[in-house]
């Protein structure tokens, strides 16, 4: 995975069938990138469901959350609607896993992203990262600790 202090690589991916999200558009805000293996899988659902509940805490630190997996925009669309998510899920779909590869968190054997977290600062520099065991929901405590320590600087 890309290391702390690295400039976060730029990307532009579909978030809905007719919208795209570009990382550089979020300059001036902190960004939490949550790479996860697959829509609908139990652990991913719990993890994204938890973050959906902790968005308010992220926003208190001027941070936006973005989920990324190799699923298509239509799968994301249905998953978001079903789970009432209030944050974008980006489709790293074509070429498959290109952004996960840029961040060095692609699992080529499974053809999915690893379960990886990055916190990027207002200038686009990676300030925190975490690679979770794939079957484990990493929770939000690490992200919040990172955001808090960034605010103190």
């Amino acid at each position: 995975m890309l290391s702390i202090g690295t400039k976060a690589p730029e990307f532009s991916l579909a978030s809905t069938p007719d919208q795209k999200v570009q990382l550089s558009q979020l300059k001036g805000k902190k960004v939490i990138l949550a790479f996860y293996p697959a829509d609908w899988s139990p652990v991913c659902s719990d993890q994204m469901g938890l973050y959906n509940e902790t968005l308010k805490l992220f926003h208190q630190h001027n941070a936006e959350l973005i989920g990324i997996s190799v699923d298509s925009k239509w799968s994301h669309f249905a998953f978001c609607q079903d789970r009432k998510f209030h944050f974008p899920l980006l489709a790293d779909f074509e070429p498959k896993g290109a952004v996960a590869k840029l961040y060095d968190v692609y699992d080529a054997t499974e053809g999915e992203s690893q379960r990886a977290l990055f916190v990027i600062d207002e200038e686009g520099i990676i300030r925190w990262n975490y690679l979770s065991p794939v079957g484990m929901n990493p929770g939000a405590d690490g992200i919040l600790d990172a955001l808090e320590s960034m605010d103190k600087k």
Partner: peptide
């Protein structure tokens, strides 16, 4: 309560 849980690593 919720926040103390999140900060303690409650994930479900």
């Amino acid at each position: 309560d919720f926040e103390s849980g999140v900060r303690s690593g409650v994930n479900g």
